[in-house]
């Protein structure tokens, strides 16, 4: 019972941060929220007894993908700052 409640709360949090990732005008917020969706999803995988998938999602989906997004964002910001 307690497991189902935890699961529902985590799923709702993942959906909420997905909505934030899509509607936010601030790019940093939306990238961080997309990483949060992956992190919460990896917890969901763990509760669904899929530890392999949970490890992969936590290492690749939520950390490396976020870092790549920030590299690109940093480069774009630097370019736009130097132009003004």
């Amino acid at each position: 019972m307690i497991e189902s409640i935890l699961f529902i709360v985590l799923a709702l949090l993942a959906l909420a941060s997905a909505v934030v990732a899509v509607i936010s005008k601030n790019l940093v917020t939306s990238i961080i929220s997309a990483g949060l969706v992956s992190l919460l999803a990896s917890l969901l995988y763990l509760l669904m007894s899929a530890p392999d998938v949970a490890m992969t999602e936590a290492a690749i989906g939520s950390s490396l993908a976020t870092i790549i997004f920030f590299y690109v964002l940093n480069r774009i910001r630097a370019k736009e700052d130097s132009r003004d």
């Binding site: 997905a18 990732a21 899509v22 990238i31 969706v37 989906g61 997004f69």
Partner: peptide, 11 residues
Amino acid sequence: VSFSVVDTGVH
């Protein structure tokens, strides 16, 4: 970013 959200959903 939206594409990566779709990705997570499919997984």
